[in-house]
Design a protein around this nucleic acid. Structure first.
Length: 574
DNA sequence: GGCACCGCTGCCGTTTTTTCAGGAAAAAA
């Protein structure tokens, strides 16, 4: 298999150098695709070569085929070597930094001979970049800021929860075939459904611990076994995320699961609670009256012993959940089953990939009563935003489709851009003909706090707007939220009876859990919507609901738990 | 540069605005 990786790496390097040179995009993409294809190849590429089947590999044609052939025959690539003479490969790392483009990087490289990220940083710090013709102090500062942000991003080793969930599901799938296993659960921050996950914690009980450890260390996704003991193991997966397994006793499984689920702040609260009741809870276990050791096969028993309602994992963040559980005032959390429709989805009319009808059918198949088609409005050109005329056509199309549907309603909506001045991208006479208006900020994301806050509040004061979508515009791990003052936004939503979205798109989760909590505390409604751009993405709902649960959201405060009639009435009223 | 589906070809992601610098890069879904 090593040869496959080697070939894949060479093809990838070629694609990067071609990109640096400004080669035609499709040629770059062809090499990249071939690289990907070779790396995910099941068989040995040398076998393909020997059998003359290289071109059976998807993305490999005559040209790339001969590059691979040369590589396997001589161990070298003439094309790669020629390209390397022109441009150093390290320069590619610079253009990968968001905010520094290819031409700027090349210009700096040619003027100063610098190539690595460190050299660029030095060049910017010593003000050598501002002296290059065509660049100035502003660009120099931009480069420095971009490199700083990049540095911060590199030290972030966590991954978004939806990716961690998929990896954990894969691990649990392998466990099914492990005979020595009695029981296993995901624990840690993933069980709490935190937005970003550092590593995947798994707690298991075993008939045969050695076999289970073996099983874990020999999974197909295991790349490196970092640590291995009689009752624990730690691996790095091929997704570069670590997974830890702890084998615990069956009779105290519940307590161990709770201790391994955390959070630290939550456990500290539990320990304090135990102490106040004359008991003791620690890593060693639970001691009734400080002396008698009590075991809990199930978590519920532990919480009961502490005189608490059972606290769902999503709430275990030390944000007052233990007090609430003691008083019996924990929120009755929203569940996926409570959701009756999706109020923010796209179709092929703008930048989605499915038709209106397919989105409607898929939504109905999920058991929903309604779906709101909210394609982009005219100003968002990159997303193929709808002109007023096309929007009118779409509304007519939805009317036609609704006539054919029973027990399901397609709502006419728009994800209308909130313009930099706070006005909406559609005139009132269009807005009032829509069933639902979802407003979003997509441009000018770097406005000052006061400007962007006023902008959004202005939109919230528009009588036609129903929902404010992804209120902070954050993209997990990639883009910081806008400088918006969320407290003022929540206040304005309250005053104007507007709904704030919990965008379920997995790298948005916006509102954040903390912001959802603020909205709940303020008595503001939220709507959990997927922002789907195709039928498969309707399944993102689960991540939005999990995120809302972390923010203590209850069914009563989630707009899209309403029936179609109640929903339309609600929109009409406010 | 690869590929699909027939011919010697066209498609593969796109378009506009903002920003910095004086034409061009970067950002937005």
């Amino acid at each position: 298999m090593k040869k496959n990786d080697e070939v894949s790496a060479v093809l990838y390097d070629i694609s990067r150098l071609l990109e640096l040179e400004g080669e035609e995009a499709y040629r770059i993409r062809a090499y990249r695709k071939a690289s990907q294809s070779v790396s995910s190849l099941e068989g040995d590429i040398e076998e393909y070569y020997k059998e003359g089947r290289l071109r059976d590999i998807p993305g490999v044609g005559p040209s790339i085929g001969s590059v691979i052939e040369e590589l396997l025959r001589t161990g070298r690539s003439g094309l790669l070597e020629t390209l390397k003479k022109e441009t150093p490969l390290e320069l590619y790392e610079v253009i990968e930094v968001p905010g520094i483009g290819r031409k700027t990087a090349l210009k700096v490289h040619r003027a100063l001979g610098v190539a690595t990220i460190e050299e660029f940083r030095d060049a910017a710090r010593s003000h050598r970049i501002r002296r290059i013709k065509g660049l100035g102090d502003k660009v120099e500062k931009k480069i420095l800021d971009a490199l700083d942000r990049h540095n911060k991003a590199l030290s972030e080793t966590r991954i978004p929860v939806f990716r961690a969930s998929a990896i954990a599901a894969e691990i649990m799938g392998y466990f099914k075939d492990c005979e020595g296993l009695a029981q296993a659960d995901v624990a840690g921050s993933l069980r709490r459904r935190a937005p970003m996950i550092g590593d995947i914690d798994i707690v298991a009980a075993a008939h045969d611990p050695a076999e289970v450890i073996d099983c874990f260390c020999n999974m197909p996704i295991t790349r490196i076994v970092k640590d291995r003991g009689e009752h624990h193991a730690e691996i790095t997966t091929r997704y570069r995320v670590d997974a830890k397994l702890k084998i615990v006793s069956r009779d105290n499984y519940g307590l161990r699961l709770a201790l391994n689920t955390g959070s630290k702040a939550h456990l500290r609260e539990l320990e304090k609670r135990a102490m106040a009741r004359g008991d003791r809870l620690s890593k060693e276990g639970f001691y009734k009256g400080g002396e008698e050791k009590v075991k809990f096969p199930r978590e519920e028993g532990l919480y009961r012993a502490l005189g608490l309602e059972y606290i769902p994992p999503e709430l275990r963040e030390g944000r007052g959940e233990v007090d609430a559980a003691a008083k019996g005032t924990l929120p009755d959390l929203i569940t996926v089953e409570d959701i009756r429709g999706d109020l923010h989805v796209h179709t092929e009319w703008s930048d989605g990939s499915s038709s209106i009808q397919d989105m409607a059918m898929a939504a109905r198949a999920k058991g929903y009563e309604y779906v709101a088609i909210c394609d982009h409005s005219k100003s968002l050109h990159i997303a193929n935003g709808l002109s007023i005329e096309r929007l009118r056509d779409q509304m007519a199309e939805i009317d036609r489709l609704n006539d054919t549907l029973e027990n399901f309603t397609i709502l006419k909506g728009s994800e209308v851009d909130i313009m930099p001045d706070g006005s909406l991208d559609l005139p009132d006479d269009v807005l009032e003909d829509l069933d639902i208006v979802v407003g979003s900020v997509h441009t000018q994301l770097r406005q000052d706090a006061d400007v962007v806050t006023r902008r959004v509040i202005n939109a919230l004061e528009n009588e036609h707007l129903t929902i404010l979508a992804h209120p902070t515009s954050r993209i997990l791990g990639r883009r910081e939220p806008t400088a918006i003052d969320i407290d003022r936004v929540i206040e304005a939503a309250k005053e104007n009876n507007k709904v704030l979205e919990v965008n379920a798109y997995p790298d948005r989760l916006d509102l954040s859990d903390e912001h959802v909590k603020k909205a709940m505390d303020a008595g503001v409604m939220v709507s959990i919507d997927t922002d789907s751009h195709g039928i498969a993405e309707l399944d993102y709902m689960e991540f939005g609901v999990n995120n809302a649960r972390r923010g203590w959201a209850t069914k009563a405060r989630v707009l899209n738990t309403l029936s179609t009639g109640a929903l339309l009435e609600y929109i009409e009223r406010y």
